[in-house]
Design a protein around this nucleic acid. Sequence first.
DNA 1: TCAATAAAGGACATTTTTGTCCTATTTATA
DNA 2: TATAAATAGGACAAAAATGTCCTTTATTGA
Lengths: 145, 145
Amino acid sequence: MMFSKACEYGIRAAVYIALQSLDGRRVSVSEIAEEIDSPIAFTAKILQQLNRNNIVHSVKGPTGGFEIDREDMDTVKLSMIVKAIDGDKIYTGCGLGLKECNASKPCPLHDKFIDIRSNLRTMLISTSLFELATGLEVGLTYLKR
Amino acid sequence: MMFSKACEYGIRAAVYIALQSLDGRRVSVSEIAEEIDSPIAFTAKILQQLNRNNIVHSVKGPTGGFEIDREDMDTVKLSMIVKAIDGDKIYTGCGLGLKECNASKPCPLHDKFIDIRSNLRTMLISTSLFELATGLEVGLTYLKR
DNA sequence: TCAATAAAGGACATTTTTGTCCTATTTATA
DNA sequence: TATAAATAGGACAAAAATGTCCTTTATTGA
Ligand code: FES
Ligand code: FES
């Protein structure tokens, strides 16, 4: 509703990979798709994007799969995943669809919108994969239903 | 980026109609589309939806067009337009795309997401068409660029 | 009453997003 | 070195969102 489907899958996949990497497990696309309840081939495409953006790390061949380094779980923020998949229109676009959001020629919603957008931005920039994964680890949160 | 194109056009159209209604002017689809820079036939469809939801009032025939009663400008909130066009997934959906957002089985982003969503919700519920239109009237805001 | 005007609405077209399938490439291990 | 397992990537398919066109209906005013 705020992110594209691709982005939703991307975030869920990254969180699942992070969680498994904490246990030293490398995971395959099919396992990921199963665990986050997403279409497998589509998920594979998204993982390619995340790999190209150095958000996850992929290994080909037998025993291969996806993993995330422990340090990367701290440095990779949600904002990076969103930007890699959906671009930055969520940060820079006008809420009413004007060609650009610009305070010097604002749409009627500009002032109210700016606040909300900046809350969202702050949240995305400050939330790490590690933080999300550990919630899962403790069993407080879920990646599918 | 948060609303569909249809919803963006719908809000801009409603604000423009409100503004003109304040001057007692009834406006045609073609004028609206021109003034908010939107595709005319698509805008016509959206206006039909808004009319069916009693957000705007339409009059057929010569001298016809769209208008909004002065009282309605106060009672019609942005939330009603969004709901009429995009439904209420923006209020009720899970930010990570789980089948439903539910605090008893939350996704990893749930707590952080809830805050932002509730800010957005409050803003939409509390903002009236009148408020948006008067900003335009004073020339502080714009509906196209 | 008739012609012109404007919205309503159905059918269709285009574009974007989402999703699938198949082949190529890489790599571990027997 | 051969085989099998896994990701990479291109081509294609389906669905949803966006956008267009044309006919019908209502209404005004000459
Ligand atoms: S101009 Fe519309 S949100 Fe800034
Ligand atoms: S469960 Fe995901 S936002 Fe509530």
